[in-house]
């Protein structure tokens, strides 16, 4: 039996290691051939002309993720405060199952929803339907369950005595919740947001469906945008040779982003443990 546990546990570690090796083994030579600067800072992605600059995609991922966090984090955190502090038991249950359901909806369905609801609405309002803004709104919705559930448990972990102490000073229930309880849950809430960022950076399907996918550095909220994930999934099917390796290298860059986010997360967790 011991050997079964051993193998099971090592499968996970092996997977990560293999992914790492695969990305680096295929990605690094491509980056070397293209030139690291040309690859990371180049603004032209034209595989037909052997131009492989992924700066537009990096910027696109950053924009869309930032937009998602700007939309998702405040809504998520306020919802979490409401669930942990004010909502009645029945409403809490309803909210919790809604959030759990949200987390379970496949991203292609979010994408479809974005395509048939968000895109037309935004096109009517602003002229362009598939844009940084559309992708941000959709991703903001998609990271809500992550942020809400993690932030809620962080807020619940704060001793009741902080809330009562603030109330006893004559602070309103809202002020007590936002200025005494919330700061005490700071590191847990930051961790929730960082995990949300991780989800947003890695999301592919939904983004492809609503972002427009032009390989340009977006010049505003209403500009079309292509993220790193979209770049990979859009071209992987027919790419060959250096083109294919450049896409794998894009994945390697994405992987580094995720590593950074995980590193931040473990920093925050360490802070919380203190």
């Amino acid at each position: 039996m011991k050997i079964v546990f051993f193998i099971a546990a090592w499968v996970a570690i092996l997977c990560v290691a293999l992914i790492c090796v695969f990305l680096l083994a295929n990605g690094l030579p491509a980056i070397g051939e293209i030139g690291p600067l040309n690859f990371l800072l180049g603004t032209k992605w034209k595989p037909g002309n052997d131009l492989y600059g992924i700066a537009p995609m990096i910027v696109g991922s950053v924009y869309v993720t930032a937009g998602a966090v700007l939309i998702g984090a405040p809504i998520g955190i306020i919802t979490a405060v409401y669930m942990a502090q004010f909502a009645g038991v029945r409403l809490q249950k309803l909210l919790r199952s809604a959030v759990a359901l949200m987390a379970g909806i496949p991203s292609v369905i979010y994408g479809f929803f974005g395509l048939v609801v968000l895109v037309p609405v935004l096109r009517n309002l602003f002229g362009t339907g598939k844009s940084v803004l559309t992708a941000s709104i959709l991703l903001g919705m998609m990271i809500l369950p992550t942020i809400i559930s993690l932030a809620e448990s962080a807020i619940r972990a704060v001793p009741k005595s902080y809330y009562e102490g603030a109330l006893a000073l004559g602070a309103s229930a809202e002020r007590s919740a936002f200025f005494a309880v919330l700061p005490a849950a700071k590191s847990g809430i930051l961790a929730a947001v960082v995990l949300g960022i991780g989800r947003a950076v890695g999301e592919t399907m939904a983004v492809v469906m609503v972002a427009g996918n032009q390989e340009i550095i977006p010049n505003g909220l209403f500009s079309g945008v292509r993220t790193m994930t979209a770049n990979i999934v859009l071209e992987m099917g027919y790419a060959a040779g250096l083109h294919k390796d450049a896409l794998i290298a894009t994945a390697a860059v994405l992987f580094v982003f995720i590593l950074i986010i995980n590193f931040l997360l473990s920093l925050l967790k360490g802070q919380e443990a203190q």
Partner: peptide, 20 residues
């Protein structure tokens, strides 16, 4: 109620300074 609690302050059994 908030005004009442401003006029009638309270110190709790267990010290509960805010984490700030």
């Amino acid at each position: 109620v908030n005004l009442l609690r401003k006029r009638v302050g309270m110190v709790f059994q267990k010290p509960n300074p805010f984490p700030m």
